[in-house]
Amino acid sequence: MVALTTEIRESLAGTRTLFLATSSQNRVPNVVPIGAFKLLDDETLLVSDQYFHKTLQNLKENPVVALSWWGEKGGYQIKGPVTLHTNDEIFVQDVRWMKEVRPHLTPKSAVVMKIAEAYHVKPGADAGKKIL
Rank of each mutant, 00 (worst) to 15 (best):
K114N: 05
L40E: 06
L12Y: 02
K54A: 11
D49I: 00
T5M: 15
A125D: 08
V2I: 15
V65Q: 04
L4E: 12
G124T: 12
M98S: 10
R27A: 11
V82M: 05
P103D: 06
G75A: 05
M113L: 15
S23G: 11
V65D: 02
L4D: 12
V64D: 01
L56F: 14
E100M: 03
D88N: 13
A36V: 07
R9E: 15
K129Y: 03
T22G: 05
L84Y: 07
N58P: 13
L4C: 13
V92D: 12
M98A: 10
A36T: 06
V95H: 03
V82H: 02
R16W: 01
L20R: 07
T17Y: 09
L59Q: 04
M98T: 09
M98E: 10
E10N: 14
S48C: 14
D94G: 05
K79P: 02
V92Q: 11
S23L: 07
L45N: 03
F52A: 15
F52C: 07
H120T: 07
K73E: 14
L105I: 12
K130F: 03
R16Y: 06
Q57I: 07
G75T: 04
A116T: 01
E7R: 02
V121L: 05
G80R: 13
P81V: 07
R102P: 01
L12Q: 08
A36G: 01
Q57M: 13
W70L: 13
G71Y: 08
L18K: 11
V2P: 00
M98K: 03
G80I: 14
K38C: 00
K99A: 14
L46N: 02
V2M: 13
T6F: 02
P107G: 06
K54L: 13
G80V: 10
S23F: 05
V47Y: 11
L132C: 02
Q57W: 08
K60I: 11
L18S: 08
G71H: 04
P123G: 15
V31T: 15
P63L: 10
A3T: 04
S68D: 06
A66Q: 11
Q57P: 04
I78W: 01
D42I: 02
F52P: 06
P107V: 00
P63E: 09
T106L: 14
E117F: 15
G74E: 13
I34N: 10
V101P: 03
V121F: 02
F37G: 07
D88M: 12
